[in-house]
Design a protein around this nucleic acid. Structure first.
Length: 574
DNA sequence: GCCGTTTTCGGCCCGACTGTTTTCAGTCG
């Protein structure tokens, strides 16, 4: 299937292969950048090419254009197929191990004949690496540690597992003598859904003893490396952390530098160079070497002729162009959320009663709550029979009569059955204030069937919101096969909202699709999918996804007053 | 491999740290 994501993966693989072969670094980068460009494409590959997109796109020249054409015509790229056979597959595995790059991986393969990750571990334990040219005992130990790390966590952590921890550590560092600022940077600050490690940037006076406060950080297992400005630590929780220490005057530039992304920096430094400036982690430099002081990131961007770019947007898409023309969106904030939909109770598989969940919502300052227990087909989750639906409705009415400051809406999370029909007949669905429709079974349908199934569900006039669109579980399970552009189009045409499921294991819709949804006229809802009171706080992660997806408060249904939000969820019924 | 209103050749973002070395390559972000 001619697909831009598959082609992007091929180009990314070509980049790795070329790197393994020791090719020119800039050639490697050309393929990396082509992969990145394709990944960000808003249209499908064929129409992009047909509309002359190749000629207009920076970074795609003659050679890569030809390979794209070849891929569209044949579904393959001969150059890649050939390259693959010339590089042993095991090298792909080896370079995923921290501390092992292409050069050392190749050396291990050539000198020790390592054929698998398991063999590498064995070779380390047999002490066979130390003694190879360029290798020593330390390197061997580091590789063993890297192997452990990959085995335990596949090198990735959920944002929700590290973000709160990172903030706590930053708070601790801020309380230390001589420290004037400390902030979480890196992919946590950019709110990537999974992250590899924790980055913290610290501003300390010249006299401050960095080593003292670093070793005092709670939860440090050991120090991995330590220089005067950069310290790498392993935490007891299993995640690694980099701490960078700079002088207060350098803090803003350093914070920017260590927030990334790599792609954003490459683009930004190219722009700086055009303006005769140089960027490094300590600040901005004019051509004559004069340092340009910046007090904060706002000033940093201003010095480059740009509006401030929020960390979530720094992924190397088109954020620089839009910042240059003051066309960046004003991103949604947590405080914009006025109420929540998609909440479970003890009526189905929740752990708290309807009343307890209502109280928890009120405590968070929200004004409305949409209850959506599971529908009857979801027997594993004690889905509601029709009689129970009526009973729950009575309790909701009673609570609403008692409370002035909170409105409860009676909804349902209805299963989308394999043929795309819903779990209750229309006359039952019509009795709910709103309906979330989700797939919970038959995940293995073909892409075409699954797409048809979901699109058909959205044509039902009672379906307000599509729940967790892809069904993925981060670090555990890929989503089902789905033609997401077709689903987004159908959502726009039918007036169905799409959920940003804020459960940190899901974060589904993925932020990468949010912009396209918005541009197709789709409204989104940040839904906690809470099964317990504390899970209402998942909203924080959902807002992070929305921000990362370039969304404003206006794009999100549950930033509105209760009546308006409900009206939007019921607009298909008119 | 890509790019260019100084360029069709010679650049391409930039620096810290480690380990194995006696001046630097490899890795990482």
């Amino acid at each position: 299937m001619a697909d831009k994501h598959e082609l992007a993966q091929i180009f990314a693989a070509v980049a790795v292969l070329l790197e393994l072969k020791g090719e020119n670094h800039f050639k490697v980068r050309a393929y990396e950048s082509a992969a990145h460009t394709l990944e960000q494409l808003k249209t499908d590959l064929a129409s992009f090419v047909a509309d002359g997109g190749l000629e207009e796109t920076k970074g795609i020249g003659k050679a890569i254009s030809q390979k794209i054409a070849e891929y569209l015509a044949t579904g393959k790229i001969a150059f890649y197929e050939e390259l693959k056979t010339s590089v042993p597959a095991v090298l792909f595995e080896l370079i995923k191990i921290p501390g092992l790059g292409p050069k050392k991986a190749m050396a291990l393969y050539e000198n020790l004949g390592i054929q698998s990750v398991g063999e590498l571990e064995y070779a380390c334990r047999e002490n066979r690496l130390a003694g190879l040219p360029g290798f020593g005992l330390k390197t061997q130990e580091k590789i063993l540690e890297g192997l452990e790390y990959v085995k335990r966590f596949q090198g990735q952590q959920l944002l929700s597992d590290v973000w709160p921890l990172a903030e706590k550590i930053a708070d601790f560092i801020r309380s230390q003598p001589g420290v004037s600022a400390a902030q979480v940077a890196g992919s946590i600050r950019r709110r990537k859904e999974t992250v590899k490690d924790i980055d913290i940037v610290v501003a300390a006076d010249a006299g401050a003893d960095g080593a003292a406060f670093i070793t005092a950080i709670p939860g440090v297992e050991r120090i991995l490396s330590q220089g005067t400005t950069k310290i790498s630590l392993a935490l007891v929780s299993g995640v690694n952390m980099d701490v960078r220490i700079v002088r207060p005057a350098e803090f803003a530039a350093a914070l920017h530098h260590f927030t990334g992304s790599k792609e954003h920096h490459i683009a930004l430094r190219g722009l700086a160079k055009e303006k005769g400036l140089k960027i490094n982690e300590y600040g901005l430099e004019a051509a004559d070497g004069r340092r340009i002081a910046v007090r904060d990131e706002q000033e940093f961007y201003r010095a480059l002729g740009l509006d401030y770019i929020e960390p979530e947007l720094r992924e190397g898409a088109d954020e620089l162009e839009l910042a240059a023309s003051s066309a960046l969106p004003l991103l949604i904030k947590e405080q914009d959320i006025t109420g929540v939909f998609h909440v479970h109770t003890t009526y189905s598989d929740g752990s708290a009663t309807l009343e307890e969940m209502a109280e928890a919502v009120r405590q968070r300052g929200w004004r409305y709550l949409g209850i959506t227990d599971h529908s009857r087909t979801a027997v594993y989750a004690r889905g509601l029979r029709v009689e129970t639906v009526v009973e729950q409705r009575r309790e909701i009415d009673r609570l609403n009569a008692q409370n002035q400051d909170l409105t409860i809406f009676a909804g349902i999370e209805s299963d989308i059955l394999p043929d795309g029909s819903l779990d209750y007949p229309d006359e039952i669905l019509a009795q709910f204030d709103f309906v979330i429709a989700s797939v919970h079974s038959s995940f293995r349908q073909s892409e075409a069937d699954m797409t048809r199934r979901i699109v058909k569900a959205m044509t039902n006039r009672y379906v307000s919101i599509l729940g967790h669109a892809t069904g993925r579980i981060l670090l555990a399970r890929d989503g089902y096969e789905l033609d997401m552009p077709a689903v987004i189009r159908a959502a726009g045409e039918t007036g169905t909202a799409i959920e940003i499921n804020a459960n940190p294991y899901r974060l589904d819709l993925d932020w990468r699709w949010c912009r396209q949804a918005k541009e197709s006229g789709v409204l989104l809802a940040v839904n906690p999918d809470a099964h317990a009171p504390e899970e209402l706080d998942y909203v924080r992660y959902g807002v992070a996804v929305a921000r990362k997806g370039w969304l404003t408060a206006a794009d999100i249904i549950n930033t509105r007053p209760a009546e308006q939000a409900l009206a939007l969820l019921r607009r298909k019924r008119n």
